[in-house]
Design a protein around this nucleic acid. Structure first.
Lengths: 197, 197, 197, 197
DNA sequence: ACCGACGGGACCGCCCGTTGTT
DNA sequence: AACAACGGGCGGTCCCGTCGGT
């Protein structure tokens, strides 16, 4: 990777953290200058505007989260194991976040509720991807007979993601992992008693 | 109610909506001027700063939500009915919000993650109140034999609130009430099969 | 004196102090509201504008200073005594000011240097009055043979006033009456050795 | 001198004039923008705040005055000549000011009487420097036998500075150099008759 | 005769983005 | 490829003044 590309990546990584903590409107270019150690010119050479940077930083954050999820899914073949890994990924996201500030998709969904349509659209797409991924795990499991056929794959995926996202936010609000643990316990119970054939 | 008090209430109501949609840093005093129809002088007469206004507007929003919840609980005596009413209140909050922008507690929790400690503290307190309220409904139900004694009141409360909040955010992101419906279906099933004695 | 007149006087007294300490542009109507204990409406009922109030407050301050000077001159008949009394009045103005903030004429002269022409004109007139008064004391003394005829009444008056005003400002800057004492010592020596026949 | 340094110096020079005429609270950043021909971004790039700019502008003004005084003292070796040069410097300051608005030390002393403690402290230091300089000239003269040993160096310095400052202010108030001339005549007479051995 | 409430504008500081320079 | 310097505008806050009420 050439020098320029490394700088660009460096900016994205730091900017992703800043935006994830402070939000798009709460973060200033000065914050990003400080976080990156670059001057304005250096940043604007790589990105055309604050919004453009935010969009790419969001993608960066989602990629990071997806990579973390992929790592958790690696070597898990059984659908119930894979589903548990998804839940564990949320726990990991709370305990050892790659980027500070919680779930970028949720944060962006809530902040871009009003204004930024481009960011909102990306958050939507990322959320769809997440839901589809979980749904796919369940559906595949059903096809392979690892998960009860009567289960509603899509609904279950929504329940898993919604409750995990909610628990993540609440745990972060309190600075206490207990809420997340409680929800995870519930989800594990759902997996064991409702999905297992 | 005197004229001054009416104006103050009017500002709070409009500002609560603006802040709930745009967030604290995303909302400008100009936005609030437009929403209230007042000029700066009028707003600053009632509230010393943007932050002070935001704090009181958050309280206003929480009061509204609590009132909506209280209305849903009215005339419900059986614990399972009351618990269902809580879930219904989230559906109502999505379908017919008193204030636009979703759940003020969740929004504030996520946005104030970084900066505003005063807002964050209020969000914490409001979330505690909500969790405690749901937990209380369950605990009371257990005392009265309306809810299975083996259930974990606190954990169940967390699951209900976390999944409902998550579903609310996701439904709002998609502009589609399906995710909320799916989670509600799940919660109703939990209530019927796990809590009912 | 009727109630309205008393209020008006009260405002003038407090406003004179505020303006003398903070200057015209440095003082806000809020400062004067606080100093007077009145609300805006009350002040504006008596005075048409901040500038109008400042003008009258300046006159009030000058009247106070003149009264203090007149009191010092009372019962002094000999010109040298009267001249000494003028000098003493400056010392008194430093030690026990009727209004805080130093000499209103000097303060206004320096602050209104740029903008406020009306205030500047009043400061000019007040300074002329002061110089003329001192000159008159010396000239009368010369007519009565109490002061050496060769002395230049106008020049001496300027020296007395300029050095006393300068000393007052310097002493106030340092919060130390020594500079004033040193100048007074000098002026007393001038009176004794140069003016006494 | 690089471009940036030139701009910074340019801002200081113009701002010093604006502050000296209008005072700290009477001058707005818009005034300084107009005087410098720069926009806010340019000014705030060099100075962090209005106060920071005012502080440095005050230092600039004092440096200018000191340079003018130093120039007047150049080639003067005899203490009485040097003392006369100090007095002449005040006359020059009135007739051909390097910065408009009179003596920055006196102006700042009087305006910062109330609020700005940082400015006040700088005015104090500058006044101390001036008094010490004049006192030093006299004391050196006494050591060299050029000035009568009985003279009180410190007191004489105070008298010279106080009367010159007072005369400067009064002359500026009237727009007439006569008061300054009268005081200078007096000071020359003091020098000739009281200090000359 | 005075207060409470509000309008509208000016204030300082920070913002995002651009440009000359290296 | 990046920095230093600057333009122009919006941000929240405070300002002076007015007007309805009492």
């Amino acid at each position: 990777m050439e020098r320029s590309e490394r700088t660009r990546e460096h900016i994205l990584q730091r900017a992703a953290g800043v935006f994830n903590r402070q939000g798009f409107s709460g973060a200033s270019m000065a914050d990003i200058m400080e976080a990156t150690g670059l001057q304005k010119g250096g940043i604007y050479w790589h990105f055309g505007s604050k919004e453009q940077l935010a969009l790419e930083a969001f993608d960066y954050a989602v990629d990071q989260a997806n990579a973390q999820l992929a790592a958790a899914l690696e070597h898990r073949t059984h659908a119930l194991d894979r589903l548990s890994a998804v839940v564990e990924a949320f726990v990991e996201h709370l305990a050892n976040p790659r980027l500070p500030g919680g779930c970028a998709v949720m944060n962006t969904a809530i902040e871009s509720d009003d204004g930024n349509v481009a960011l909102r659209e990306r958050a939507r797409a990322a959320m769809v991807d997440l839901l589809r991924a979980v749904e796919g795990i369940i559906a595949e499991g059903q096809e392979r007979g690892e998960i009860r056929a009567e289960a509603d794959a899509r609904q279950t995926a929504t329940v898993v993601v919604a409750s995990a996202e909610g628990a993540l936010a609440i745990s972060r609000l309190f600075g206490d992992h207990t809420p997340m643990d409680q929800v995870v316990t519930h989800l594990r119970w759902v997996i064991d008693t409702q999905l297992r054939p």
